[in-house]
Computed example of a mutant assay.
Amino acid sequence: MHKKILAGLAIAGTLVAAPFAAASSLTLYSGRGEAMVQPIIDQFEKQSGIKVNVRYGDTAQLAVLVQEEGARSPADLYWGQDAGAMGALSNQDMLQELPAEIYEGLPAVYTSQKGNWVALSGRSRVIAYSTSRVSEDEIPSSIFDLTQERYKGRVAIPPTNGGFQAFVTGMRVQHGDDVTLQWLKDMKANDPVYFRNNTTAVAGIADGDVDFALVNNYYLPRFVAADSEFPVKQTYFEAGDIGNLINVAGIAVLKSSKNQEAAQEFVKFMLSPAAQQYFTSVVNEYPVVSGIIQNPVLGDLDDLLEIAPEIDLDQLADLEGTLKLLRDAELL
């Protein structure tokens, strides 16, 4: 399916030849899964003639590896699954400042205020729910409602999942550690159902194991694509609620790269209409540039930006502080 979509974009003239920097290869550390991003990387190679050697792995582990390797790192580019990992490397002064033109026209929520990494796609937190066991008046208006008695034993959370942990970090930024720790303790006291990741949590709703799940927006569309009658829907909380956090997959050029120009061209390609259309049509994430055909399964991006909390994505870097709170709440 990936190849068919990319071929269609190429035939339509979306992919056009462009001059690239003289470099035979680039090395990319990718915290994004191979199935998600390799097809669009292949397209960059085809267009540019530049070979991209990809090391796939866990976002946080690759960020630690980059820090350990320092100036000796063979990586030219780092592609992180979430803003926290990007911020961690930025705080270590390991990322190259990007040209201002890369940021032109991007919503503030998709940019690093330090100017040394940029989002390639966005995703939002949502609450998924059973269409057969949840009535309309039971859908919570705030994530803080989920500690109420009426939700006891009905809510799925994946405490070891990076997306959930990034959300908890966002709550810390918006509400502080004390409020966040209390929410975590109250959630634990309300007997949540534990899942290892977002996919199993959404499946758990359909299987009748749980009624609600706190997940990222792009998991449910995958189930719906396979089964139009899949008995789960998802929605947002009230405007400004931290439960609507927008997180991003970001990319950066390492300061230690000896292929700065070619690496920047890779970033620019991933912000091109063809790549952005791929991210929304295939990966089910939000594009970060305008003029992209909307994925009908996703909500309108402008509507999402209106209800999303205002969070400086660079502040999502303190994963260790979040893990401590999760341990203090006995969720890890």
Rank of each mutant, 00 (worst) to 15 (best):
K258E: 15
T200C: 02
V193I: 12
A201G: 12
I246M: 06
S256K: 13
D186F: 09
A262C: 09
F223N: 10
N247G: 07
N247F: 02
L245T: 00
S257I: 09
M187C: 10
F237L: 12
F195Y: 14
D211K: 08
K185I: 09
N190L: 09
I246S: 04
S257F: 07
A225D: 10
S256E: 08
T180K: 15
Y236G: 03
A252Q: 00
P192T: 00
Q182T: 15
Q182A: 14
P231M: 09
L184F: 11
D186Q: 15
V253T: 13
N217M: 05
F230G: 06
T199Y: 13
A226D: 15
N247C: 01
N198K: 04
G250K: 00
N216Q: 14
P221L: 00
P192C: 08
A206S: 07
M187W: 09
A262W: 09
K188T: 07
D209A: 14
L220K: 05
Y219P: 01
R196D: 12
Y219D: 04
I205M: 05
V215A: 12
T199P: 05
Y236I: 03
Y194N: 06
A201I: 13
E261D: 08
V248W: 00
A225H: 01
T180Q: 10
T180H: 10
T180R: 13
N259C: 04
S256D: 03
Y194C: 00
P221E: 02
S256W: 05
L184P: 08
V232D: 02
S228L: 02
N216T: 15
D191C: 02
N198T: 14
I205P: 02
D178T: 15
Q182H: 12
Y219L: 03
A239V: 12
E261A: 11
V232Y: 02
I251S: 09
V248I: 11
V224G: 01
T235S: 14
A249F: 00
N198Y: 11
I251G: 15
M187G: 06
L245H: 01
V253Y: 04
L254N: 04
G204K: 09
N190V: 10
F230R: 01
N216L: 11
L184R: 07
G208Y: 09
Q182P: 10
I251F: 06
Y219C: 00
Y236N: 05
V248F: 09
T200E: 15
A206F: 03
P192M: 02
N244S: 01
Y236S: 05
Y194V: 13
E229H: 05
W183R: 07
G250T: 02
A252R: 03
G204A: 12
E238Y: 08
D211S: 14
T199A: 10
A226F: 00
